[in-house]
Design a protein around this nucleic acid. Structure first.
Lengths: 215, 215
DNA sequence: ACAAGCTTTTGAACATGTTCAAAAACAACT
DNA sequence: AGTTGTTTTTGAACATGTTCAAAAGCTTGT
């Protein structure tokens, strides 16, 4: 199914690069599998030897973006930042990295929310969580102990929400999404502080009970 | 494009019914436009005369479900219910009505979140809002005045969230979605009560500023 | 060098969503 | 009844995602 030899890996890389270039130029729907094959100087069938489907190519592209997001956000999480700053920076960086791919929103969502339990989805999830753990761990003051444990998963949930919003955000330059982030970051920070209050805590518990078993 | 005469309307209805039946039996992806045409005793081209695309059929189906949800929830909103009960009943009814169409989740989402500004989307939005206005208006005690105005839009937002969750919920019988509703309803009610507190109010303001201009 | 068994590549087919020009059916008017 | 214009219907084509059996290349062991 996938590549085993050096030559195979090379072809695969070639196809992925071509696909990326065409996607950028012609958009997702506007790029045909035949075009990807032709521009790569490879047969159509061969393309399917390396990628199960057109969506699978997007899936891989998406995973790359998640990786980029993580590594680009990491150095921003410097000591001295409070939670709000960390959250805002990470979310903003995510929008920044996604911005050239707005047209893929729906396709991304299909892969991001597919509910697939395969390895790729699992590593993606782990990658995302790692970032949000770092966001929490480097924030000062540290969030209340009672919530510290679950906060990364909550933040990941928030990110998914922002991502969804962005995917269907048709405002120019995703202005509305950027405003959302600007508003959400302080809201989160406040909520976290308030999590000491039993009423707020119980609401958070409701939400946490959702992220715990899955998603 | 669409039907003008009685016969045309008849053909359209026939196609829609056949599509619905086939969707239920074979699933969305499993139902081909050719099958719909064949089973209706109509040519393929004619099907496209009445429905712009396969998605357009789903779009119409979805609108019908929204309508059903509204009219089925209405009688449940009896005097004496508090907000939590009303919210829970409406959300549960929504899951109940959607349940036979779980497989359409992604397709529904495409139409529900397409961001299209056409008439169909606008009437759907109005229909939804009307229900949530009723949910708020019939609840006792009435929600705090400061938030009463915006609450319907907030609740509609919550419903969209639940809908998204449901669409990608792969648990059997959408158990997780049902639990979500069970947890969300009291959380909402508590939040509304707490909205008198400035801190909570400011968070809600952040969210409200999002639903106000659009979505 | 050769055989056996992988991996890679190809080319042709298939299935299905969608388009379109032309035919048929129908309605309205004279 | 006949003409004219509109709505409905058809059938054939097209575009593109996907599958598959067979050919070609490569690697490894003899």
């Amino acid at each position: 199914m996938t590549q085993q030899t050096a030559k195979g890996a090379e072809t695969r890389r070639l196809l992925l690069n071509t696909a990326l270039r065409l996607f950028a130029k012609e958009g997702f729907a506007g790029t045909t599998m035949r075009a990807i094959a032709r521009e790569s100087g490879v047969s159509l069938g061969n393309t399917y030897y390396y990628f199960e489907s057109k969506d699978a190519i997007v899936h891989e592209l998406f995973r790359n973006l998640v990786e980029q997001h993580r590594s680009a956000s990491w150095p921003l999480l410097v000591p001295g930042n409070n939670l709000e700053t960390n959250v805002r920076l990470s979310l903003e960086k995510s929008l920044e990295i996604l911005s050239p791919f707005h047209e893929f929103g729906p396709a991304f969502i299909r892969t991001a929310f597919s509910g697939a339990q395969d390895e790729l989805a699992e590593t993606r999830r782990a990658l995302e969580l790692e970032l949000w753990r770092q966001v929490v761990a480097t924030a000062r003051p540290l969030p209340p102990l009672a919530i510290r444990q679950d906060l990364p998963q909550l933040l990941r949930l928030v990110q998914r929400g922002v991502f969804l919003f962005w995917a269907y955000d048709s405002s120019v330059d995703a202005k509305r999404s950027r405003r959302l982030v600007k508003n959400v970051a302080p809201a989160i920070a406040r909520l976290v502080v308030l999590s000491r209050m039993p009423v707020v805590r119980s609401i958070l518990d409701d939400v946490i009970s959702l992220v715990r078993p899955a998603t």
